[in-house]
Design a protein around this nucleic acid. Structure first.
Length: 433
RNA sequence: CGGAGUGUGGUGUAACGGCUAACAUGCUCGCUUUGGGAGCGAGUGACUCCGGGUUCGAAUCCCGGCACUCCGACCA
């Protein structure tokens, strides 16, 4: 894409009412637009990042048997009354709205109820199980206090997968697989090193639920991390008993602030029983389906990446989620030869399947560099009189700041487009096993 | 929901109760410049969040509302 035609502009200063680092940088870079507290629109650059994150999640969910669907946001109140989750005194984050007829509907904050009911149309026999539908969809939560930029919004995007299994054993098997899939996601988006599987309160059907917590000062949660075992305990269940149950010792646990980027729950038959989601087993008996739910928010992941990986100059996107692979800086404003050449390199890279943002604007070099740092594309290529005369390109890596002069031909020929699906072999094997 | 704070051109700021609401940035035009937000000049752009009140006079003081931010509580 040509930057001259990109309708968003960067800003030197963030609006004064944006304090959080993620919103400040995302707004300055032109990734998002704030509509209201906790409500953000995604602009071209931001949407590209969001789609990349979502696609990574899709690949990992599909790899463990997920089937993507898209459910409605408007929710039928009757079904939520069945499980006693309609009343505002029980669930205080509902947005509710009234139809012309006078009927009241809700805007979904999660989807256990409607999906469970939906699945009664499709699950009858043990032969129909297990099954793992998921969606990536806008969720609405009427938070009393939105905060931290895109991290805690009133409208946000969430991937929610629900598992439907015959037995607890079958459920547990999938539950363990989902942990691997989740860690794959966080690895791939660049948060692997700082994200921990965290034990949290489980509810009626399981001793624990599991959260995926990324260490960050911008976080709202407190967890206790065991660095060696790569697991953590949420403050809410941090007791001597839990520590010893998990085979950990207090001495090796370090208190950290963290961001909850995902969580998975065993639901047992909490929803299948009241909503009548049963199946006939091999023995001819009717049994309730065993369920689990698995949440992961692409918008929050995006915010967490910004919080974790940005520096004083701007964002530093990992390649896997960057809006573009390469940022070409064309310094040939007054030199048609240079301009033309930058255009040629742009076209050639595009033809190789490399996604490129070409800064062809007629502005000063300093502004181009500053914007490039802010936008945070991992690889920057500078094309100028200097580089052209030498037959070189200057390649600068956003994360390290390292600059190399390299033969242009050699560099272009060496570039290979990212494969659409780049699950690592290691992760593949883990899943196969 | 408790507490605190803030609302002034697109953005960031200034203005004792008193002249035509100032400065920077952005944007437009011209010239200059071209490897780190460069320069000069000319323009453009604000019913000072909304509604009342006090006053000869309100961006400024008072009341009400709305919005936003922060701290806390909350976060199936």
């Amino acid at each position: 894409m040509r930057q001259s035609s990109l309708f968003t502009k960067t800003r030197k200063e963030a609006p004064k009412d944006e304090v959080s680092k993620n919103a400040s940088l995302l707004i300055r870079g032109g990734f998002v637009h704030k509509e209201a507290a906790g409500v953000y629109s995604f602009l071209p650059l931001g949407l590209r990042v969001l789609e990349k994150i979502s696609n990574i999640i899709r690949e990992e969910m599909d790899a463990i048997g997920g089937q993507e669907i898209l459910m409605s946001s408007l929710q039928d109140k009757n079904i939520w009354e069945t499980t006693n989750r309609w009343d505002d005194s029980v669930v205080d984050v509902w947005f509710k709205t009234t139809l012309k007829s006078g009927a009241v509907m809700g805007l979904g904050f999660t989807h256990e109820e409607p999906l469970t009911r939906l699945m009664t149309n499709h699950i009858n026999s043990y032969k129909d199980l297990p099954v793992y539908p998921y969606q990536i969809q806008n969720k609405f939560r009427n938070e009393v206090r939105a905060k931290s930029g895109v991290m805690r919004g009133r409208e946000f995007i969430m991937k929610d997968l629900y598992s439907f299994s015959r037995t607890n054993e079958e459920h547990n098997e999938f539950y363990e697989k989902s942990k691997i899939a989740y860690m794959n996601v966080f690895d791939r988006v660049g948060l692997g090193g700082t994200t921990y599987i965290t034990f949290a309160s489980g509810g009626v059907f399981a001793k624990y639920s599991h959260e995926f917590q990324t260490i960050s000062d911008a976080g709202e949660d407190i967890i206790y991390v065991d660095e060696d075992k790569k697991i953590a305990i949420n403050e809410e269940v941090y007791t001597d008993k839990v520590i010893s149950d998990l085979g950990l010792s207090k001495e090796s646990l370090i208190e950290k602030k963290s961001i909850e980027v995902g969580n998975i729950f065993s639901l047992g038959t909490k929803f299948s029983e009241p909503l009548g989601l049963n199946y006939v087993d091999e023995d001819g008996k009717t049994k309730p389906v065993v369920m689990g739910s698995y949440g992961l928010g692409p918008t929050r992941v995006m915010g967490t990446i910004v919080e974790s990986l940005s520096d004083e100059k701007g964002i530093v996107w990992p390649k896997s989620v960057s809006p573009f692979d390469v940022h070409i800086i064309d310094l040939g404003n007054k030199n048609e030869e240079v301009k033309k050449h930058a255009e040629e390199v742009y076209q050639e890279l595009k033809s190789k399947g490399v996604s490129v943002l070409l800064d062809d604007r007629n502005t000063g070099a300093g502004e181009k560099f500053a914007d490039s740092d802010l936008i945070g594309i991992p690889t920057r290529i500078v094309i100028s009189e200097k580089t052209m005369q030498a037959g070189n390109v200057e390649v600068k890596y956003r994360s390290s700041g390292e600059t190399v002069m390299i033969s242009e031909r050699e560099y272009i020929d060496g570039l290979v487009a990212e494969p659409a699906n780049n699950l690592s072999a290691i992760n593949r094997n883990k899943l196969a096993g």
